[in-house]
Design a protein around this nucleic acid. Sequence first.
DNA 1: CTTGCCTTTGACGTTAACGTCAGGTTTTAG
DNA 2: CTAAAACCTGACGTTAACGTCAAAGGCAAG
Lengths: 125, 125
Amino acid sequence: MTVTETAAGRLVRIGEVARAAGVSTRAVRYYEQQGLLISERSPSGQRLYRQDAVTLVRFFQQMFAAGLTSRRIAELLPCWDSGHTDADQRAMLRAERDRIQAKVDDLQAALDRLDEVIAITDTHP
Amino acid sequence: MTVTETAAGRLVRIGEVARAAGVSTRAVRYYEQQGLLISERSPSGQRLYRQDAVTLVRFFQQMFAAGLTSRRIAELLPCWDSGHTDADQRAMLRAERDRIQAKVDDLQAALDRLDEVIAITDTHP
DNA sequence: CTTGCCTTTGACGTTAACGTCAGGTTTTAG
DNA sequence: CTAAAACCTGACGTTAACGTCAAAGGCAAG
């Protein structure tokens, strides 16, 4: 309990963030390099993250799974941080939303194709 | 109309296949190299495909979009060609089906997150 | 003090489905 | 016949999100 532990929360090292979020430390360093995470540094140079970094990393994983690049996520981060958005950001949000929706439709179509084949091959031993 | 043009259908060159399926000729050669397509060769060495190759290529595109690798598609091709499947193939079919379904769920979750943000930023100019 | 785990920077490796260029042959349109 | 368009093989380039290894420091426990 040092003087620096105020309402801002406890600071955690990279390993704890990685374990809590279910990713590698390499991934966390990569996110920081891409401008997705910010860290303070201990006197010896070790990264210290705020504990909400764990939530952020989980969110990044979800966006990556949806096909967003780290660049795009970085461009849209202000929408979460500040709640403020300009016209460009709103357009990007809708574009990504539409792209994901199209992808869902594609996947659903592929799923239907596979289910057809499964049904046929199951009744056709 | 040569003697070889029987009920098997007309043979088309790679460019026609590519255009009809909406891909590059490079992609078609790649598919053949991966064992997804078969071609006869003209006396001068040009690839000649059966016209149903177009349907196949479109199908490959759909499977690629669903995250299947060319290797996996090649392993499952007999399920379409012959209708016959062994236990391994049926297991693979279900595994891919489940993986795609999980991916759809992930995408839907990401979509909901984005829609939340869009709703907030739209009412919060 | 030393053992062992955690962290650092730096840099090369991976993967899949092609893109792209080079240099040469073939087919087609006129 | 000739020029353009299409085709061939071969081979290197691309991309994103990390994996992996190297060499070296840092930190609590016993």
